[in-house]
Design a protein around this nucleic acid. Structure first.
Lengths: 194, 194, 194, 194
DNA sequence: CATGAATGAGCGTTCATTCAT
DNA sequence: AATGAATGAACGCTCATTCAT
């Protein structure tokens, strides 16, 4: 069957994310991806230079989508505590629908290496996110909502707390994510509150 | 050379951790491990059923060691806030000396899969740790040091905050870990304080 | 663009020779040939049954061209020793300008195999050349220029001597081909002279 | 079945030469070699670093053997014309028994490339042979057996004439090699005779 | 108990060839 | 006639695992 270039790329990227989510980064072979996508192995190299390139593209496609979605939901002029409440709730809800995608991205970002063996991604790639969150915390401090604290360490911890929520919900399927989110909101706000 | 079973196992496990730390999880072959341990390739399979089993055992040995070390340092009868302070400081200091070992364990726990593709480790393996920490938080609440909060979510978040500190320090080498630790202590205590 | 069948074949054959000369026989892919010819990959198979066929045709086209050029230069009524002198000098001069083409043809003729593994070319394909040269030697003998000798062995040796000159000049770039040619003429004429 | 290291290497080298002789250099895959040797594919990498290394070793093993055999046969104190007679006769006889080996060596030396694409062997590797033969021709000139001529061009031509004899006999199976050898001796001696 | 030669499945990748458009 | 997306067989090579010694 013949498809347009964009559909094929999307299809292969989706298959990549699915396979990584299901079998883990180290067990993901191009054979498995091709089977999942329902195409021949050879076709992968028609669209992607090599496996690393395919993995990178997959992460980029996924993260771009999520960021855009979240940005859409947030009212940046709201009081900072409300923004935190809203963001945690939205992510918790969103994660229920995108468990696989999350798992895949986690695996790839942690596992992918450059040719020289260095990680292709690292926490350094969170930098823009950290900066946004630091700005949020600083605004909260300036407006008197938040007490003084190290905004960088808070941003790292905050982001980690959200990632842990998603991981914990993933490995403990009985978890009520909405309840977890409320408990986490309580903890985060207690930590920052003036 | 003939050794007792336990010495052999320990020797091989140590070699595994060393190789993973040095070359990374994905570049760790059993051949490399055998060379590092100074034994023949075949001998590995006398002591471990397969590579996955070997990796699992290595992680367990390493984490058990760390836990024991930490437990040694902590005075469980001290006031809970002091325990938290002490623990975070000790881990921060310890991590500086054991960066490679940490990286190895991180890579194995995140990358290792069973034959069927399921993760060999998950947050479920943190269960004993979570329980210990919940006990600590509950004691703090009972003694009036801490406000009421969801102790399970707090334990997960707390453990995550510490892991993030280690990861962040690893990927941002300019970080002053001691300062980071103090800032984190401030945040954690603010979150729990009555 | 639509072209007549013959133009297309010629265009593709020329591209094949160019690619083999530039990248070497083993690195020559049909994709590369198609790009060089400026046509699509698929079009190749309208005009040539398979890669082997394409290569064969290319060699034949090239050798036919060279033979025609040489035949043009030779005065077949001249005394045989003069013909030999002229031919060796002409080939030596010609080779300087066509090093790449020579290399390509050498590589194809030696490397190309039929599906069953048999060489696609062999010295048997020199047969017409050998016959022409035997005729020349026989004429030289009849006219009293040349002593009696085995004309077939002489033809094979003579052709080999010329090929060696080209190969030697190719692998020893400091060689003065004109001087080599004169020394070779001296040797050949000594071998045949009455 | 278990073999000593040297037997295995020899067996694999022999298989390599056989496969190259039969299917040609470019069609020689490691799979084919392993099948021919009757061992598993993986075993090849136990004994040879890569395919190129295996090919190189095979050529070296083969040429070393031949040179030693020939050197054994030649009386270097004999008159130069007798040496030439003896050598051509010996090689002609020897070639009948070693047709396959010859074909393989020819293919490998012409086809093998370094990683960078340059030929791994070239006529430059004939240099020691050329020097030996130049010495022989010079001795013949000094002793008055031979007329003056360019000894380098003569050596190249002489070596080429012998190679052509072997190739011609290979591609024209009806050839009587002994007769060819006598005719060639006649030609060579005519070319050098004082 | 211990070795390391030997196996074989699987890897990422290439590429001649086919075929829907 | 012409395209290039798609296929699939084969490639060189790696490596966990087995087993004769």
């Amino acid at each position: 069957m013949r498809l347009g270039e964009d559909e094929r790329r999307a299809q292969i990227v989706a298959a990549t994310l699915a396979v990584v989510a299901r079998y883990g980064y180290t067990n993901t072979s191009t054979t498995l991806i091709a089977v999942e996508a329902g195409v021949s192995k050879g076709l992968l190299w028609h669209y992607f230079a090599d496996k690393t390139e395919l993995m990178k593209q997959s992460v980029i496609v996924a993260t771009t989508g999520i960021s855009a979605e979240l940005a859409n939901e947030i009212d940046v002029t709201a009081p900072p505590p409300d923004i935190i409440r809203g963001a945690i709730r939205w992510i918790a809800a969103w994660s229920v629908e995108h468990r696989e995608e999350l798992r895949a991205m986690d695996q790839i970002t942690r596992g992918l290496r450059e040719k020289n063996g260095n990680p292709a991604f690292s926490l350094a790639d969170y930098e823009p996110t950290y900066r946004d969150q630091e700005a949020l915390f600083r605004r909260g401090q300036e407006l008197g909502y938040f007490r003084p604290f190290d905004t960088r360490v808070m941003a790292v911890t905050y982001q980690g707390a959200i990632d842990m929520m998603l991981s914990y919900a993933d490995s403990h399927p009985e978890t009520e994510v909405e309840q977890y989110a409320e408990a986490l909101i309580d903890i985060v706000l207690a930590a920052v509150r003036a």
